[in-house]
Amino acid sequence: MKEKEKKSIKVGWQGYLALFAAIILFSGIFSANEGWLKVFDFNTLNGAFGKIQSGAQALDFRGAGGSGARDGFLFSIELIPAIILALGIVNVVDGLGGLRAAQKLMTPILRPLLGIPGICMLATIANMQSTDAAAGMVKELVDEKEITDEERSVNIAYQTSASAFITNYFSSGSAVFSFMLVPIIVPIIVMVIFKIIGANLMRLYLKTVYKNHSQEGTNNG
């Protein structure tokens, strides 16, 4: 089992570099920089729409005072470039092994924090980007008797809350990147922390509330 673990998470230097670049890009560290370092900022790369002068105001193409489906449509057009850019960057980072690097760095912390075996880590990597694929991997682990039913429940409690958070956050979340008051990376950190808290609430539940019912059988899965 241990060999399997080592095999499953292999990260080259590009992975760490890609992760580092992504953290810089989404942390907004260089957003206020006046020089060329500004290039390492997501919102700089995302740019701006041109303005249309209308009376005293300069409006973008959406104008002002719209409402309903039409306003919603134009607003979603405003969002799409950020989603295209964000998911393009995420795919590069993932392709270079950046998400694996993140997981590898976090594994020694996550394992004791979640109380699940290291073999689940590949599923938790998958969970950053896909709900279904990660859940499927967990099922496989149970079917192969690598993890127990309880470990599955804890892992899934971690996965369900903010599932596929990288994909979801960088797609719909891009809607608020321009006016959000915290760096883009902060909500991600908050989500991961609460995912861990959620898994531990599940452990607590299994140890306390559910323990009384455990005689009824735990193999219903």
Binding site: G198, Y205, G221
Partner: peptide, 22 residues
């Protein structure tokens, strides 16, 4: 998530509750 992973359906309520609490 819960269905695909085949989680014991007795835990559904707890897991969804955890999402709300989180």
């Amino acid at each position: 998530c819960l269905g695909i992973a085949g989680v014991n359906s007795k835990h559904y309520f707890a897991i969804i509750g955890i999402c709300v609490v989180n």
